[in-house]
């Protein structure tokens, strides 16, 4: 049995696919690619395929990890080529490695939020407002969890934040707490900032760029 970590990029139309649906999408792709997976041996056997970090609906990902266990020894290049030949548009394997870090090592991630406006003035205004709101250290939002809805201060989860305007687009770059302990989804931050700043962009795209473990070291 081989433990393999796949790294995929999610973009385009695939962004509208939920976490659960991505799981199904990968299970089928692995079958189409003819990569024999190890099946769990329980009452209802299913292939071993684990997404380390859920990516919320609507958020793109540059390099997202999925762990699989294969029955045969297939080279990383071969796995990558076979999967990319059968994956739907918008989902692409960018790398295949061994699973170096444990899933619970994830602490934060770098996100890019691009909010498009009708004018460069609106974009600049949003960038400015967002920057100053985050600087106050208080940005409250309702967060849903298994225990119910509670109000949290999102700034406690923002580790780094930068906002600038690029023509009609406000580009927010943020390192947010990510993982099972503390987690802030980029879409929640963006929606809350929109409300606080009183703006509504024409379009908005969110991308998780890099996943970090402690001390901003890249998760591998």
């Amino acid at each position: 049995m081989n433990f393999v970590r796949l790294w995929y990029k999610k973009s385009g139309l695939a962004v509208y696919t939920s976490h659960l649906d991505m799981n199904r999408c990968f299970t089928r792709a692995v079958r189409r690619a003819g990569i024999p997976l190890w099946y769990t041996e329980g009452f209802n056997p299913h292939p071993y395929l684990t997404f380390l970090l859920p990516l919320p609906l609507g958020t793109a990902g540059e390099r997202e990890p999925v762990d699989i266990r294969t029955l045969e020894d297939i080279s990383p290049e071969e796995i990558k080529a076979r999967l990319n030949a059968v994956l739907p548009g918008g989902v692409e394997i960018v790398d295949v490695t061994e699973a170096k870090d444990k899933a619970n090592a994830v602490e934060s991630a770098l996100y890019e939020i691009k909010a498009e406006f009708n004018s460069s003035e609106d974009a600049a205004e949003f960038a400015l407002k967002a920057e100053s709101i985050v600087k106050t250290g208080v940005l409250e939002a309702e967060k849903r969890s298994k225990k119910g809805i509670k109000t949290v201060n999102l700034c406690e989860f923002i580790l780094d934040f930068d906002a600038r305007a690029d023509e009609n687009t406000a580009v927010l770059t943020a390192v947010l707490a990510t993982g099972t302990q503390n987690n802030l989804a980029a879409n929640l931050l963006e929606e809350t900032l929109e409300k606080a700043a009183g703006v509504e962009p024409e379009k908005c795209s969110l991308t998780r760029k890099t996943i970090y473990k402690a001390d901003r070291a890249v998760f591998e």
Partner: peptide, 14 residues
């Protein structure tokens, strides 16, 4: 992103 299950409306399936 304002509707339930947007994947129903995008096309682009395998």
């Amino acid at each position: 992103m304002k509707v339930q299950k947007p994947g129903r409306y995008t096309g682009g399936e395998l």
